[in-house]
Structures are given as C-alpha cells and as structure tokens.
Amino acid sequence: MTNDAVLHTEGLTRRFGGLVANNNIAIQIHRGQLHAVLGPNGAGKSTMINLLSGDLRPSTGHIFFDGQDISGFSADRRSRMGIGRSYQKTNIFPTFTVFENCRLAAQSREPHPARIFSNALSYRTVCEAAERAIELAGLAHRAQRHANTLSHGEQRQLEVAMVLATSPNVLLLDEPLAGMGAEESARMVELLQRITPDHGILLVEHDMDAVFAVAKVVTVMVNGEVLESGSPEQIRGSAQVQVAYLGAEDEHHG
C-alpha cells in the first residue's frame, strides 16, 4: 500500500445487520487526480462516501488522511481537516439565500463563535470565499435568491458550491450531475477539470460520458466490492466490467 495518497483506505468494511454494504475496500485518492467510482445502484458507492466523510463508521478497516488514521473521527472533525463532501440527495439550507448557504459553509473555516458582538458579514475572507465558490459553481446570478426557489439543477450546483466554499483538500462528490441539464452538466464537468489540479477528488457518478471525460482513475464497484480499478481505457476495455456492469448499464438509467 503506497502512502503518498492524500486519502486512502485499508480493508474498509461496513455491515448493516447481515448485509455487507462495503467489503474490504481499498481505494486511494491522490492530489491533482480525479478518481471516479462507477457501479450499479446498491453497489455501495454512497456507503463508501459516507464512510470516508464520517457520516457512517466502518465496521472494520481503516481510513487514512495524509497518513493519519482517521477511522474514528467524527464527520465535523474530518471536514475541518479538509475532507469536503456533497450529497446525492440535495442537502442545503432551503430558507437561506445562495450566498448565505455558501457563507455559512465558508464560515466553518474561521468560525469565531466567541465573537458574539461582531457581525458575521464583516469577515471579508469568509464572504470572499463564499462569493468565489458561487462564481465557480456558476451561480453568481442567483446569489441573492433563496435556495428553495432555485431549480433542481441549480440546487445541485449549490450543493457543490457549498463544498468548495469550505476550501477542502479532498472532495467527495456523490452524483453531483444527477438532475442537471446538459448545459449545467457541461459546466460542472468543466469546473471539475478546473479544480482537479489542486484537489484530490472522489467522484461517484452515473453519467459515463462525464466520468470518462474527467477521470484519471476509475473504480468499478459491484455488490459492495471493488470489481476493478484502473485508467479509463483499461476499464473500458475490461471484459469483466463489460459483463458485470457496462453491458447492463442501460437498465440503470430508467
């Protein structure tokens, strides 16, 4: 196991009762590299992201961040260390504006809870980080809108913008393109390409074209296990993957 990965796992396993949702997963995320995870529904992709982000605890196995074992760390602590995640099911502050959603995200980096007599809007670096994230995600024209008045695709963009606003080193993105229109998707793919050099990214996504356009490494999961991992070309050419997943891929797009 090489340890130059910014985030990697060893023997990561999670059981729910008798069901093994993740079995002995070893995965590595390197800085400057986008690592995509493919797999049919129920393959355990979201479980893996939840394990990496701390929303779930592993049954056995370990997670390392910059060489440190973080398996027992809480979700908020991991976030503070620089692991940011987005959710498959939009998880925003619906009654706040887009700006406030991202400002709150950025505020987590310099929280100042004891300064109860200062105005939250007076922290310029926080506001700037929020604006930058909104700009990157292509929501600048919506900044003052309440999040619950956005279209579904825009809410997905906001979901990613909030992660960006926390200035993470590693991004765990759970199907960021789901529900986006063609134009929005294209912009998101472009965004991913733009931010990849400075980040380690784990991308769970169903959109094959997008995945093969941006990923440097692709891992295919089936039934909670890693079926194969390699370059996009290797995965495309793999007979095993063809049989297990790509051949049956149409079924999963209904």
């Binding site: 929303d55 809480s74 100042h112």
Partner: peptide
Amino acid sequence: ASPLGRALHGIKVNEHRMLSLG
C-alpha cells in the same frame, strides 16, 4: 447577526449539513 448566531440558525434549519460542513 454574529457568526455564532448564523451558525445556530444553520443548526435549526439543517443540523446534519452543519456537521458535515465542519
């Protein structure tokens, strides 16, 4: 209106997301 107050409001609206934001 302070960072604390804004964070509290965030907790009321979506506690889970506040955790994952750190």
